[in-house]
Simulated assay, not measured.
Amino acid sequence: MEKFIYFFTGITAFTTVAIWLGKLIITKTFDLGLEKYKSSLQKDIEIHKSELAKQSLEHEVKFSKLHNDRAEKIIVLYKKVVELEKALIHSTNIAQGAEFKRDTQREKECINTIETLIAQLEFDKIFFTKETVSKVEDIIREAWQIVVQMTLVRSKANRETYFSRETENYVNYGELWNKTFERTQVEFKKLKETLADDFRELIGI
C-alpha cells in the first residue's frame, strides 16, 4: 500500500512538474514569438515612417519648385501687362500734336505688345487657375477695345480739313479721345490691380 502511495505521489509530482514545465515552455515560446512579432512590427513601422518622410520631402521639393516656377512666370507675365499699360497710355495720351492723325506707330506698338502678352499667356497658362487666366484675358480684351477706340478717334480726326475746336467733328472725336484716355487710366488700371492682387495671393504675399 505504501508503495502504491509512493508511486501515486511520484506520478502526481511528475505530472505536476511536467505540466509546469509545459506551461513554462509555452509561455516562453509565446513571449519569444510576441517579442519577435513586436520587433518585426517596429521595423515595418520604421520603414513606413521612412517612406512617408521620403514622400513628404519629395512633395515639398516638387511644391517648392512649382512655387518658384510660378513666381518666375508671374514676374514675366505681369511685366508684359505693365508694358501693355505703358503702350496704351502712350497711344491714348491727349498731349499729341496734329500729326497724330497720320501717326499709327503708337497703335502698332500696342498691337505688338498685346500679341506678345497673348503668346506669353498661352505658354504660361498651365501654371495658373482658370480664374487667373480669365483675368489676364479680360485685360487683353480691354486693351483691344482701347486700340479700336483710338483708331476710331484718328479716323474721325482725319475727316477734318483743319484742327479746330469750333468744328462739330472735333467735339466728337475729342470727347471720344478723352474717354479713351480715361479708360486706359481707370478701367485698364483696375483690371491690372485685380490681377496683381491675384498674383500676390498665389505667391503668398
Results as ranks from 00 to 15, higher is better:
Glu168Gln: 11
Leu84Trp: 02
Lys135Tyr: 05
Glu85Trp: 00
Lys43Gly: 00
Lys189Tyr: 05
Glu131Tyr: 07
Ala119Ile: 12
Ile126Leu: 10
Val61Pro: 01
Tyr37Cys: 03
Ser134Asn: 13
Glu166Met: 07
Leu34Asp: 11
Arg106His: 13
Thr132Asp: 09
Phe63Gln: 10
Asn169Tyr: 08
Ile5Ser: 10
Glu175Tyr: 09
Thr29Ser: 06
Ala196Phe: 09
Thr151Gly: 07
Ile5Gln: 12
Ser64Gln: 11
Arg154Tyr: 09
Ile75Ala: 13
Glu187Thr: 14
Lys156Asn: 14
Asp69Val: 03
Ile19Gln: 01
Val61Gln: 13
Thr194Glu: 15
Tyr170Met: 10
Ile126Met: 08
Asp197Cys: 10
Ser91His: 00
Ile26Cys: 09
Val171Asn: 11
Phe127Glu: 05
Phe30His: 11
Asn68Thr: 12
Leu117Ala: 03
Arg70Phe: 09
Ile5Phe: 13
Leu66Glu: 15
Glu168Thr: 13
Leu121Thr: 03
Gln149Ala: 12
Trp177Arg: 06
Leu152Asn: 06
Thr16Asp: 01
Tyr6Phe: 06
Lys62His: 13
Glu2Met: 07
Thr9Lys: 08
Glu193Met: 13
Ala95Cys: 03
Asp124Leu: 04
Ile11Cys: 12
Leu88Val: 11
Ile19Cys: 04
Lys135Glu: 10
Glu51Ile: 01
Glu142Arg: 14
Gly97Arg: 03
Asp124Ile: 03
Leu195Ile: 08
Gly10Ser: 11
Gln149Arg: 15
